[in-house]
C-alpha cells in the first residue's frame, strides 16, 4: 500500500539518521576517546619505534672510530645516488698504502629510506635513526657528511 510504504520510508529514514547521530553524540560526550596527539608539546614523551627509518647515520664509538672500509657497497645498492663515498689512501703502521674513507656524503634530500644500503653494508657501519625532524631552511643543509671529523677506522676491520 502506498501510504504505509510512505510512512514506513519516513520512519526508517528517521531511524537511520538518529542511529548516526547517536554515534556522533556519543563521541561528543566522551572526551576520553579523543586520539589527537599534540605533537610539538609531547616531544619529551614521544617515542619513535626503534626501527623507524628516519635518516642514515654512521655508528661511531667513544674513541671516534667507525667500521667503514670505504667499500662503497652502499653506494652501489642505493637506487637514487644518495650516497657518495670519497676515498683516500693512507699509510698504515706497516707503511703500506691502505684505502680508507675521506668523506661519506649522504644526500638526505634524495633519500627514500628504503634501507637497501644498511642491508648492503658488510661491516654494519651505517644504520637508520628514528629521527624525523628534518626541516631546514636551506636545501644544502640536507647534504650531510656522515663520518665525524678526525674519525678513523676501527682496528681489525677489513
Amino acid at each position: 500500500m502506498f501510504i504505509t510504504n510512505y510512512i514506513k520510508d519516513i520512519f526508517n529514514g528517521m531511524k537511520s539518521l538518529l542511529t548516526g547521530m547517536k554515534i556522533t553524540g556519543y563521541y561528543f560526550t566522551h572526551h576520553k576517546e579523543i586520539i589527537t596527539e599534540q605533537y610539538p608539546d609531547n616531544r619529551a614523551t614521544l617515542k619513535m619505534a626503534d626501527r623507524f627509518r628516519g635518516e642514515v647515520v654512521m655508528i661511531h664509538d667513544e674513541n671516534n672510530e667507525h667500521a667503514c672500509t670505504g667499500c662503497s657497497a652502499c653506494e652501489l645498492a642505493c637506487p637514487n645516488g644518495t650516497i657518495k663515498i670519497i676515498n683516500k689512501f693512507e699509510l698504515n703502521a706497516e707503511g703500506k698504502k691502505k684505502k680508507a674513507i675521506d668523506t661519506f656524503v649522504y644526500h638526505l634530500e634524495l633519500c627514500t629510506m628504503c634501507n637497501l644500503c644498511i642491508i648492503a653494508c658488510p661491516t654494519d657501519t651505517i644504520k637508520m635513526e628514528p629521527n624525523f625532524e628534518h626541516s631546514v631552511f636551506d636545501r644544502s643543509q640536507l647534504t650531510k657528511v656522515l663520518n665525524h671529523t678526525g674519525s678513523k677506522i676501527k682496528a681489525g676491520v677489513e
Binding site: 563521541y27 561528543f28 572526551h31 586520539i35
Partner: peptide
C-alpha cells in the same frame, strides 16, 4: 569545537 569532539579531535586549542 563541536566538530572536533565529534571527530575525536581537540579542535582549536
Amino acid at each position: 569545537k563541536v566538530a572536533a569532539y565529534m571527530q575525536l579531535r581537540l579542535g582549536p586549542n
